[in-house]
């Protein structure tokens, strides 16, 4: 088999060399001067570029229309609606610039293609024009910058206290969630406390006693949530594409993301006319061999449904266990 491949390659090279020799010979025989050759070949390629531009632009818009249904559905969070709007504004501007500059580029090549015996227009610089096309993009960018930063500051405002505190704990290769319970306070966790009975290494303290852990992320519609991300091994990333939400989980620190889900799973299923639809939490930072399999089901539901679901989840510590703790949990735990 290998021999066949090698023979194939050798045959290919021999044929190519033969063809090249024929081409070179015929060019020599044609007696064309280099200028004549340029004058003959340049319009062909220039026309090619023009056709490429035309077909390319048509395909550009056709593809956008064809692939639109496969894109993410409407944002299911408050800030997501805002960033989607900004994204659309950005796209309109860059598509306009894209189309105009590409047309100018390819059209000029066609229009000013080689004419034998003629000279180009000697035009080395023009400071006014330079200033105009420095200032114009600056103004447009300033507009995009200001609107972008305004929503960035709103999205990342960590001072808000009204969110339900939920920990998303990541490790190779799955996520675990921990709910803060009635007190809305998560007990601290520390990696030295990790054991078979305590997979998240939660400290046995008052705040942790009502904490519950689960293997799904359930959220209450229209109720703010503050996610606290931790990782026990490598960097992971918590990506919730339908909520336009993403934050890395880094060992040794807690990262947070605050948002408000607005569409329940069942409502989204109706909207998309897809009874099997589910929200998903994906790992979006390369974390090992099974990175592509690391994800978690996300459910957005009514307060009543949420209450029922949460009641069915396991407590971090059994109700009868005492607060008094062994030596492993008495060391300082304030890594966050």
């Amino acid at each position: 088999m290998t021999l066949l491949y090698i023979l194939g390659i050798v045959f290919f090279i021999v044929v190519m060399v033969r063809i090249m020799n024929v081409i070179n010979l015929s060019e020599e025989l044609s007696g064309e001067t280099p200028d004549e050759q340029i004058a003959r070949e340049t319009p062909i390629n220039a026309m090619g570029l023009l056709i490429f531009l035309g077909i390319g632009l048509i395909l550009f818009f056709v593809t956008i229309k064809a692939y639109m249904p496969y894109m993410l559905p409407e944002a299911a969070s408050v800030h997501g609606k805002q960033t989607d709007f900004l994204l659309d504004v950005n796209f309109i501007i860059i598509i306009a610039v894209f189309v105009l500059t590409q047309i100018a580029l390819f059209w000029f090549v066609w229009k000013y293609k080689y004419r034998k015996g003629e000279k180009a227009y000697y035009y080395p610089h023009n400071n006014t024009i330079e200033v105009i096309w420095t200032v114009a993009p600056t103004i447009v960018l300033a507009g995009l910058l200001i609107t972008g930063l305004k929503s960035w500051n709103e999205i990342t405002d960590n001072q808000r206290k009204d969110g339900m505190n939920v920990q998303i704990y990541s490790k190779q290769f799955n996520f675990v969630t921990r709910y803060s319970g009635k007190d809305n306070t998560l007990g601290q966790s520390y990696f030295m406390n990790i054991s078979d009975d305590n997979p998240l290494g939660v400290k046995k303290e008052a705040a942790a006693m009502d904490d519950k852990i689960a293997n799904e992320l359930h959220l209450v519609v229209n109720k703010p949530v503050m996610l606290h991300m931790n990782s026990q091994d490598v960097i992971h990333s918590m990506y919730l594409p339908h909520f336009r939400t993403q934050m890395n989980a880094v060992p040794g620190m807690t990262t947070t993301f605050y948002f408000v889900p607005t569409i329940t799973t069942s409502e989204m299923r109706r909207k998309l006319n897809n009874p099997k639809f589910d929200y998903v939490l994906l790992c979006n930072k390369i974390c090992g061999v099974s990175h592509y399999l690391m994800n978690m089901k996300v459910v957005v539901e009514s307060p009543a449904e949420f209450k029922v679901w949460l009641a069915g989840q396991k407590n971090v510590f059994a109700a009868d266990s005492t607060l008094a703790s062994g030596s492993a949990t008495t060391q300082p735990l304030t890594i966050n």
């Binding site: 340029i38 580029l105 080689y114 004419r115 003629e118 180009a120 227009y121 035009y123 330079e130 993009p137």
Partner: peptide, 26 residues
């Protein structure tokens, strides 16, 4: 980051202006 777009845009415009009224050999 967005400031980088300004000199980059200038470069693109300058390339296109160089093509304008040239005698282009492809």
């Amino acid at each position: 980051t967005l400031m980088v777009a300004i000199p980059s845009a200038v470069k693109v415009f300058n390339y296109i202006a160089t093509l304008w009224r040239g005698n282009i050999v492809l």
